[in-house]
Simulated assay, not measured.
Amino acid sequence: MHTQLGRTGLRVSRLALGTVNFGGRVEEPEAHRLMTYALERGINLFDTANTYGWRVYKGYTEEVIGRWLAGSPSRRDQVVLCTKVGDPMGDGVNDRGLSARNIISACEASLRRLGTDHIDLYQMHHVDRTVPWDEIWQAMDQLVAQGKVRYVGSSNFAGWDLAAAQEAARRRNSLGLVSEQCAYNLVTRHPELEIIPAAQAYGLGVLVWSPLHGGLLGGVLDKLRTDSAVKSAQGRAVTALAERRDAVEAYEKLCADHGLDPAVVGMAWTLSRPGVTAAVTGPRTPDHIDGALSALDLSLPESFTARLDELFPPVARGGSAPDCWLS
């Protein structure tokens, strides 16, 4: 259920509670119940971002979490709290990106909204190649020295960005990144080429967002037939379904033939992949949390995973670059 985050001594749950649905899809009272439910079941890794809640207003989700944390004095110590910086928070030219100014001011604003004095994992939401790494690490090191940030992570970086970040941190004798959060699932397998190998080489934990590809791997066809699709009826799931309908249909049949829930299979496959520390689940109900938890106990036989590779093949010959495409 719990493992170390990369090369650190921090222990985190193999499932992270994603909060992107809090505000607009999940109202605050239910969000509070979901956080309590998840924590009671051993999920201690809570993931958010300063922009989440944009359906209401940016920063709203952090405020929801902050009010929940304030409801019990023990909650803050039990939770490994993660948020992100970098995406636009306003119309100002400096209200975005990874300048030292924005990193520090955005951190202060997140701390106020979350109602806490520190962030356990402060993640750069996207790489910002317009800012030198010395400036980024100067700002992050300052926040760590002040006790406002415990660890620094990245999200949506390329493999060479991870290397550039770590080598710059090494020159400063800094710990540098401890994790990378990337999209990874049966459909999106490009992290196998360089992102996950780079993370493993530098001792970074890998946190996976969208392990079900926006609901595509969660039984989307059955949900569409029964008019019960919510997230899977929009966004990347709809786009991918138009391109991969035959594979998705065969996937759902394979799961049905084995008496398995497609969502549990998709999550279990992701969690079983080399280098993956945790998968981020974005529940709207307690049942969604229970389903994700059951994936921790599901071991997929080799014949089953071989069939999954046939339906959703890895890039080129499979494996990491450059061997995957060399003849």
Rank of each mutant, 00 (worst) to 15 (best):
G275P: 01
A292L: 00
T83A: 10
H258P: 03
S105V: 11
R76A: 10
L221N: 09
N50M: 07
H190E: 12
R96A: 02
I43P: 04
A229H: 04
G214W: 03
G115Y: 00
V230Q: 09
E62K: 12
F304S: 05
V238Y: 06
A233F: 00
V20H: 03
L311F: 03
G97L: 12
D141C: 12
T3M: 15
A201I: 03
D47A: 05
D87S: 13
I119D: 00
L204M: 11
Y57T: 03
R189L: 04
G235I: 12
Y57C: 02
E62N: 11
C255Y: 01
A163P: 02
G215A: 03
Q78S: 14
D95W: 15
G86V: 06
H190W: 13
G92P: 10
R150N: 10
T61N: 10
E180W: 04
A49T: 14
V276R: 05
E28I: 01
K148L: 14
S99A: 06
A268F: 03
S210A: 14
V280M: 08
S299C: 12
S327P: 07
L45Y: 12
A321F: 11
L186F: 06
V206T: 05
V85R: 07
N94M: 06
T116S: 04
R273F: 09
V56P: 00
R33Y: 05
A199M: 12
V56A: 00
L17P: 11
C324V: 03
E249M: 02
P286M: 04
A268I: 05
R67W: 05
T188Q: 15
G266V: 13
E249D: 06
E302I: 07
H258K: 08
P132C: 15
L177R: 01
T270Y: 09
G218A: 08
L254A: 08
P274H: 09
R189M: 04
R225W: 08
L111F: 06
L5C: 15
R150P: 09
